[in-house]
Simulated scan of single mutants.
Amino acid sequence: MKKSELRQEIKAKRKLFYETDKELKDRYDDELIEVLINDEQYKKAKNIFCYIGMDEEINTKRFIERALKDEKNISVPKVIKKHEIKAININSLNDLVEVPPFGILEPRDCNNVMEDIDLIIVPGLAFDNNGGRLGYGGGFYDAFLEKNSKAETIALCYDFQLLEYIPMDEHDIRVKKIISK
């Protein structure tokens, strides 16, 4: 199956899950976050980069709040230009604003860049057990992961997002660990 077809299929499954059982989705999100905060990579990490989960995605806001409470340095993505994001430090979710056209939450400014990242929480539509990742097709995260190749990487996903095989191109970067529910 082509990447574009896989994207459509997984988006449809994720949307159905979100729309039909928000209570179960919330419970799964909490359980995934609990496994993540008990992971050795999280415990060792001081500087963490995490995407902001929207609607159908895993709610990473809960993770970010917990990490800040645990006195971790947290950065989130800010789109700088086409195919480029920077890791911007935040002190609170209140440091974020909705950015059109999709209402994605981003830091207000891009002044406080996190340079030395220990752990990256990687978004994706689907993953495989070899660390293969199907992103949204923009190339933002592959470029970011390549620049931050020393960081540990963890992806969170629902079981239906964990596939037998993800088609990979030469520029695609694998994640090191996947936590699923």
Rank of each mutant, 00 (worst) to 15 (best):
A12K: 15
A12Y: 05
A12S: 09
A12D: 00
K13C: 09
R14Y: 03
R14M: 15
F17A: 06
T20P: 02
T20C: 05
T20S: 13
K22Y: 05
K22L: 13
E23Q: 11
E23N: 12
L24Q: 11
K25W: 00
D26W: 03
R27H: 10
Y28D: 10
D30E: 14
L32W: 01
I33L: 12
E34A: 13
E34K: 12
L36K: 08
L36S: 09
L36Y: 09
I37R: 11
N38S: 13
N38P: 10
D39H: 14
E40Q: 15
Q41P: 00
Q41M: 14
Q41D: 13
Q41V: 09
Y42A: 01
Y42D: 04
K43A: 06
A45E: 04
K46I: 13
N47Y: 07
I48V: 15
Y51L: 01
I52K: 04
M54D: 04
D55T: 07
D55Y: 08
D55L: 09
D55W: 06
E56G: 00
E57W: 11
E57I: 08
I58Q: 03
I58T: 05
I58M: 03
I58S: 02
T60D: 06
T60Q: 06
K61Y: 08
F63D: 04
F63P: 05
F63M: 13
E65T: 10
E65S: 12
E65D: 10
E65N: 12
R66K: 14
A67N: 06
A67M: 05
D70S: 08
K72R: 09
N73D: 14
V76L: 02
P77G: 11
K81I: 06
K81W: 02
K82Y: 12
H83M: 14
E84M: 06
A87Y: 03
A87Q: 03
I90S: 02
N91G: 14
N91H: 14
